[in-house]
Structure formats: structure tokens, C-alpha cells
Write a protein that binds this DNA or RNA. Structure first.
Lengths: 215, 215
DNA sequence: CGTCACAATATTGTTCAACAATTTACAAGT
DNA sequence: ACTTGTAAATTGTTGAACAATATTGTGACG
């Protein structure tokens, strides 16, 4: 069906989004329009539309007359993101209905993380962990919030990409996510929210430490 | 300084944003690229960049191959927006520090609303009310959240634009905002948050009723 | 060797014309 | 009134061009 077919600009945005999150286009890199348009086989005008999309998502930083750069997460980025996660994820989970359909997404993410950990696929574990947290936000039933949080997660993944030990960052949280889910299943949403809050504090501390080491 | 000068695309976006929020471009209206580009005296490519910006903000709705329309707020929009306001504004206020610099913004908005109410300028009262609520969100100290909420507010103003009695919607809240501020000043953030929560419930009810009357 | 000034080069922001693909509008036939 | 086909309009994209801006390179000077 043609009305489901993404436009070239949207396909290109998707492609660049992946290249950025996967570190192929590293933070700070300047994206020259002419060169990149040729590499991507699109026209400069199309690429400029794409830049608008990704800049708004926080993955690119636009400097007037000087070009567009892959965003470089700073400590302030991390502080803001974790502040937002506490402000949004924790109440969303505390007020959650245990039979909400997003709980199935949480469960799937927990299972996926366990599988990928067993295979040593830390990137995949990271993805599953982020999916778990997006599902927590989805408990709040707000499409606008889901979209907003998707962008926050993308920025956070960019920050993770700067660090060198994905195992250190993700491994402890696989079982913790399972604990959160078990609490929620047992009808103890407040208890689940407390575990989540602890997780956020600890995760933030570890990222901040890892950032301090590379700064 | 040239690096502070907004690009033509950004100026155009600002202009269209105002035209949408002010109802000059009413909800549902289709924006034909060729015509609008000529009207605005920009090229179609520039206008397409602008459309990307405003679509992402929720003010425009893009239908592939059919064009771009001014967004039409629905009941679902209102439900989502108020859900978000409760999720964000109420905790932001409950956890606020009474000496936070955003409190001065709240105060200024209360004074502005009173001035404009005395002049019968209900549009201005509405603007001041929304500024009051943006200042509440700013208490959370998150630039990402401020930006996100700015977009939510723009959508809400679009919804208000569909209704016919701005006085009914805004008048009761001028003094209530002053009450919220007084509570916060007195160090009773929790009490302020309770008043805010009541306001949100009532405001949502009134908008939903007004929507039901025009649907 | 470092700094400054200027010219050359590269790049961004924008415009315009063109074309293919898609949608819409209109006319004719049943 | 509905269907079909055609014409017209519009969107999505491309590429070339140009003005404005930024960057780079070179030469002169202290």
C-alpha cells in the first residue's frame, strides 16, 4: 500500500538515526551536506529535510552557516535525561495497572535481554533494556509522551555509545528489570517503582563516573 | 551578530506558528505548498523544511502525497494533554523549591493576567495563563521538558481556538493561579500542587464539555 | 616563528525549474 | 447515481545556480 510507504526523506532519516546510534557517525562529527547527500544518494534538499527531523530529535546539532554535527552528549545531557526519567518513569510505574497491555512488552523485553545476555550480545541487551523502559512509559497511555521518550532514549543510547564497557552498564539490570516486573505482576506497583528509582540512581551514578573517566 | 539571526526557514516557521495558534490558519485547513510558498514569499523547498518543523511540533498533520493540514485537536488530544499535564506539572510543583527562579515567571504571569483581564483582553489572559503553566514546568529544571511542554501548550492553544467563550475558560483561573503562587510562596508546595490538580480536573471538564457542544 | 591581512576555496541557505508519481477534479457513458 | 477514463493539480524529489558565510591557505611583517 502506497500510503504506508515511507518517503525517501523518512527512510533516510531512519538510516541516519541508526548510523548515529550505532556509532558509525560518531558524536561531534560534522555532516557535510554535499558529501553526505552523495553518499546517501539523495539530493541536498531532501537531506536538509532529514536534518530538520533529526535535529529536532536531539541527535543532530545545527549551527547556522557552519553545518550540522552529530550531537555530543555531555554531563548536562545525562543529568537532564535522568531527571526526566525519574519524573516520568517512576510515577508511570507507580500508577500502573498490572494488567495494562504494556506489561506484555515489559515481559518480552526481559526475556529478550536474558537471551541476548546468554549470547553475549551486549548491544542487544542494551536495546532490550531501553525497550523495557519505553514500555514503562507506555503504561502512562500518552502517545505524545511515548514519542518524546523515544527521543530521550535515542539520546541516551548515543551517550552509552561514548562509553567502553557495555557489560558494566547493562548486566546488573537484567535481573533487576525482572524484579520490577515481578513486583508489578504481584500488584505491588509502588514497590516496583521503588526498585526502578534505585535503578535510576545507580545507573546515573555509573554513567556519570564513566563520563568523568573519559572527560 | 549573524549567528543569532534566525534563518528564513525558522522565521517562516515562527510566522506560521503564530498564524496557526491565532486561528488565521484554522484547524483542518490544507496548506498547499505552491500557494503558501508564494504567499509567504519563500521557495517550496524552504517551506517543506518549515513543514517538517511544525509537523514535529504537532501543529501540522502531514499526509503523504496529499499534503499538509493544520492539526485538528480532538477529544483524544485533550485527554492526552491533560494526562500529561497531571503527570508533569503536578509533581514539578509538588517538588518545587519556593526560591526557584521560575517562581518569578509565575508571578509575572499572574500579574500580567490580572492586567489583561482588567482590559478585557482574553487572548492575553490565555497567553499569561499558559506562561504560568510553562513556568511551573520550568521548576523541574529540564530543558528537554521545557521544549516538549512548549509544544504541548501550542497544541492546547489550538484546541482553545476552536471554542467560542475564552472568558469562560480563563477567567476563573486568574485568581486560582494567584492562590497557587501564594501557597508556594508560603512554602506549601504540596498544597499548591493540590490546587493545581483541582484546576486541571476542572479545566479538562470544561474543555471536554465545550468540545462536546461543537462536535 | 607567530600573527595578521587578504584572497581563494568550500560550504550553507535559498531559489528555481523540471520531472515522475500520486491524487483530485471533471466529463462522458451507462 | 455510479463508474470509468482523462486532464489537471499537487506532492516528493532532483539538480543547478547563486548569494552569503565560513574556512583555509598564502604572503608579508615584526
Amino acid at each position: 500500500m502506497t500510503d504506508d510507504a515511507p518517503s525517501l526523506a523518512e527512510e533516510t532519516a531512519t538510516r541516519l538515526r541508526h548510523d548515529i546510534i550505532d556509532g558509525i557517525l560518531p558524536p561531534g562529527q560534522r555532516l557535510a551536506e554535499t558529501r553526505l547527500a552523495a553518499d546517501l544518494n539523495v539530493s541536498r534538499n531532501t537531506l536538509r529535510e532529514v536534518f530538520r527531523l533529526l535535529t529536532h530529535e536531539g541527535l543532530l546539532r545545527h549551527e547556522p552557516n557552519r553545518g550540522v554535527f552529530v550531537a555530543t552528549p555531555s554531563m548536562a545531557t545525562i543529568v537532564d535525561i535522568y531527571r526526566l526519567r525519574r519524573l516520568i518513569e517512576v510515577p508511570a510505574l507507580a500508577q500502573a495497572w498490572p494488567r495494562h497491555e504494556a506489561v506484555a512488552r515489559m515481559r518480552q523485553a526481559v526475556e529478550q535481554a536474558a537471551r541476548q545476555q546468554a549470547e553475549g550480545d551486549w548491544r542487544g541487551v542494551g536495546s532490550a533494556n531501553m525497550e523495557f523502559h519505553a514500555a514503562i512509559v507506555a503504561l502512562a497511555d500518552s502517545p505524545r509522551l511515548d514519542t518524546f521518550f523515544g527521543q530521550i532514549i535515542a539520546e541516551l543510547r548515543l551517550a552509552f555509545g561514548l562509553l567502553h564497557s557495555p557489560e558494566r552498564l547493562h548486566a546488573p539490570y537484567v535481573t533487576r528489570n525482572a524484579d520490577i516486573l515481578a513486583r508489578l505482576d504481584a500488584g505491588d506497583a509502588a514497590g516496583a517503582a521503588r526498585i526502578l528509582s534505585d535503578y535510576l540512581d545507580q545507573s546515573e551514578r555509573e554513567i556519570m563516573q564513566a563520563f568523568a573517566r573519559i572527560a
